[in-house]
Design a protein around this nucleic acid. Structure first.
Lengths: 153, 153
DNA sequence: TATTGTTATACTCTATAACTATA
DNA sequence: TATAGTTATAGAGTATAACAATA
């Protein structure tokens, strides 16, 4: 009995996360903090509310993550130019370099993994994985919609 | 610029975990606890040391997880027949049923996702994902070996 | 009145180190 | 001496709820 395709996919994600965590080790970075840095790199300077939405966590949680990243010199808080309630969070120069390098390594790993697939299978794998991701996204969205989180069922 | 294959794989894992977490909601189960139940179902009654190795976490952590699962009626501790230091952890009847059902749903989801792939691509996807998983496993093992965790580099 | 961020509180997962009881 | 499990302690990630300042 061979493992299910789904189990293979989960194994890949697990291995990747282990590898990431090992790479951070000693830098003060963690998966949650890197996720925030990654969101910042893509969105540019953002309010904490925006980061909470992008990362899918509570605003309170963002406060803690930004506190830690500010202490380690990865991000900077500055006053919002037009809304005195809000702050803008942005990457520092060194963090921008770190993220650029991380993105490069990410792309390199992607190329390495694709190279492990037989050339005649590559197009089918791309198509298949994309189809699975889209289908699963639909399933999860439907499940979430039919069960409105809290309150009125 | 289309997303990298690796990003698709991580997205799939993330969606799956979200869906799992939503399914547990209100049952007192969490991903870590389900992982332990899953290990128990496959290994049969086990000592906590064995569970620590299977789950890849510290023995201390297993104590906490087993405490919680015992309180919620999913597992039972019993004395080890030949080693009075150790305890055997085993699934209760209801937990066995829960896990059987969960495994069935897991298999159903796997079938659903495979059905989302074009029939002529399925064999290639199976081969490709297996190749990627094996290759990544090798990469991570090599990285771990060249950096002996703690102490002597 | 609604929004932004924070303080307060709490729970889960995780780890290491020290201790107890066995082997 | 080494092993199985626990207590003690600590830190990260997460959440909700209450509160301040500002829109």
């Amino acid at each position: 009995m061979q493992p299910l395709l789904l189990d293979r996919l989960l194994q890949i994600a697990d291995l990747f996360q282990k590898d990431m965590a090992r790479a951070f080790d000693g830098t003060g970075l963690t998966p949650a903090r890197v996720h925030l840095l990654w969101a910042l790199q893509h969105a540019g300077p953002s309010t904490q509310q925006a980061l909470a939405r992008l990362c899918g966590v509570s605003p309170r949680n963002i406060t803690g993550l930004v506190d830690a990243l500010e202490a380690s010199g990865h991000v900077r808080r500055s006053p919002h130019p037009s809304d005195r309630r809000a702050v803008l969070v942005e990457l520092t120069g060194t963090a921008t370099e770190t993220m650029t390098q991380m993105q490069q390594e990410h792309a390199d790993l992607d190329a390495t993994l694709i190279a492990a697939v037989a050339p005649e299978d590559r197009a089918a794998v791309e198509r298949g994985i994309t189809a699975i991701a889209l289908h699963l996204e639909t399933l999860v969205a439907d499940a979430a919609a039919s069960e409105p989180a809290k309150g009125a069922p």
